[in-house]
């Protein structure tokens, strides 16, 4: 038993170490992409609004007059010291933008993921068990529908029906103005903040604001997960070890859950990790639709205004998050499936 935990720990450590070069490669790509974009970032953002002299000073302050390799070294060391600089257009520290709006995105993506995994795995299990029945067909059609429908369309539909029509849920924003300004911020994750503050009215308000955007974003992934869980379950149910377990007289519910279902989820975990990364981009659309003050929303604004540092900082953050998620997924996989550790 002891050797098992050690090898799991060793595996996790090696994955963590490997994440460092992965992040470095990603950062190089981000850096290169930013330089390949034509035009001077400072001139693009502020051109015509300030004098040539101010432009030069701004450029020097950002280190843009240095040779490219010095700029690269500066960028890398800045990232590792979490110093992303100031945004050009609204002169805010990029780190502050990431912490504020990143929390909003994280909250949205997290709850969307909870909805997606719960619904996707549950429906996948049901449709797989009831293969070729009307329930199975309906479930699969639902899966295709939510996967194929664009986020903004589903979002507008929800806003029209549950917001404007029935007036059940707020159509946009993270919280009502009252809560927005009075709730004490500790983590910037409003659900958590409301719980910490013990403010139950605020919690209810925040949750009501979360329901529609999180569901809209979550449904996108639900379809993918549903179909994947269903197909995997059908496959494992035909599996050799499932037949062997039946031949030993293991009860049918146990055969289905302990052998078929659990094994069917192994590739799904990897899928969830990949979808998490996809959701970050899916979140941009959702955030725009629901006026959610997240990082995606902010990224679009900086892109439109050609705010070079803002865009670079946020993309860097996304890249690092994706790498970290893949490390976590590797670890979870190794924890579930012992074969991965070798």
């Amino acid at each position: 038993m002891a050797s098992q935990t050690t090898s799991l720990r060793a595996y996790a450590l090696s994955r963590l170490v490997l994440a460092v070069p992965m992040i470095l490669i990603l950062l190089s790509f981000v850096f290169l992409l930013m330089r390949v974009a034509p035009g001077d970032p400072v001139a693009a953002a502020l051109g015509g609004k300030v004098s040539q002299e101010v432009l030069e000073r701004k450029r020097a302050a950002m280190g843009l007059d240095e040779p490219i390799y010095v700029q690269f070294a500066d960028y890398i060391s800045d990232v590792f010291t979490l110093d992303f600089g100031m945004t050009i257009t609204d002169n805010r520290p990029v780190l502050e933008v990431i912490l504020n709006n990143g929390a909003a995105t994280l909250e949205l993506v997290f709850f969307a993921m909870v909805i997606a995994t719960t619904l996707g795995i549950l429906l996948g299990l049901i449709t797989g068990r009831l293969r070729d029945t009307p329930i199975d067909v309906t479930g699969r059609l639902f899966g295709i529908f939510v996967y194929a429908t664009p986020v903004f369309f589903l979002g507008f539909l929800g806003q029209l029906i549950f917001g404007a029509g029935l007036n059940w849920l707020p159509a946009s924003g993270r919280a009502s103005p009252m809560v927005q300004y009075t709730l004490e911020r500790t983590t910037n994750l409003l659900v958590l903040d409301a719980i910490i503050a013990g403010n139950w009215t605020a919690l209810w308000d925040v949750v009501r604001h979360l329901i529609m955007p999180a569901t809209t974003l979550g449904l996108l992934i639900t379809g993918v997960l549903l179909r994947m869980v269903r197909v995997n379950l059908l496959q494992t149910l035909q599996g050799d070890y499932v037949e062997a377990a039946r031949a030993r007289g293991v009860s049918e519910p146990r055969v289905v859950y302990k052998h078929a279902f659990r094994n069917a989820l192994v590739p799904v975990v990897t899928m969830i990790g990949l979808q998490f990364a996809l959701m970050m981009s899916g979140a941009i659309l959702t955030e725009t639709t629901f006026n959610w003050p997240g990082l995606g929303n902010q990224l679009v604004r900086y892109l439109n205004n050609r705010d070079y540092t803002g865009v670079q900082g946020i993309i860097t953050f996304f890249a690092v998050v994706v790498v970290l998620i893949s490390v976590v997924i590797d670890f979870v996989n190794a924890w579930i499936d012992p074969r991965v550790r070798y």
Binding site: G239, D240, Y241, A244, A247, R248, V250, N263, V266, I336
Partner: peptide, 22 residues
């Protein structure tokens, strides 16, 4: 279920895939 196992046992052709890998 009571028959399978204590009364009649079954051994399969390909042992590599007959044990649950997890």
């Amino acid at each position: 279920h009571a028959l399978r196992g204590p009364e009649i046992g079954l051994i399969f052709q390909e042992p590599m895939t007959r044990l649950n890998p997890l």
